[in-house]
Amino acid sequence: MDFSFLQDDLTYLLWGTFPEGPPGGALLTLLLSAGSGLASALLGLAFGVLLVMLRGPALAALTTALGFLRAIPVLMLIFWTYFLLPILFGVDVPGVLSVMAALALVGGAYLGHGVAAGIRGVGAGQWQAGLALGFTRWGALRHLVLPQALRMMLPSFINQWVTLIKDSSLAYIVGVPELSFLATQVNARVMVHPAEIFLFIGAIYFVFCGGLDLLVYLLNRRPRRA
């Protein structure tokens, strides 16, 4: 095991050429996953609410759309948003944003079903109480059901975040300079220590994801104590 490449490349792997250049490496991985994490939470919330509130063909259309998003490998989806949509619609979205959009869509599609289940899980009693108090259906959702559902769902939101951090590594395929991409660059230069390089960045991902994992564990434990 020879980790001497770290002498030259540690900061490059951690934050790229920042602050002279744009953020890269582990810093960009964090930014990417934070951005798409936030967007996927919002999307998931919207999808979940719509899954509960919509009826008929609109519901069928949404379910089908979410089904598509969950059926396509993330790698393919990144290709679509990065290369194909710009060609189709002539919009030029910066690379980082298009990867963020792809990850947010997938994350949102997964969270949507969870949110819907959470809302349904709060129970008919709460809905009826809300309606009896004079709330509209949307009012009851907004003020009574959603706050309870979201509290229960916090762990699954964080879990989704762990998935997003890991999936952001797929951005390497379109050359977005996040951690995995920079690792392949460093590997290409060092040439003879692939095991060490991939172990090292694996460790960085582990710190990020493991930290969030620990948070979920603590969150899950707290209600039991109370």
């Binding site: 990065y82 290369f83 710009p86 060609i87 002539g90 030029d92 690379g95 050359g175 660059q185």
Partner: peptide
Amino acid sequence: IVPTNPANRIPLLSAGK
């Protein structure tokens, strides 16, 4: 400069990146 690998060269051009 936008970094590329061989396979991405034409898609990068076609997509206007």
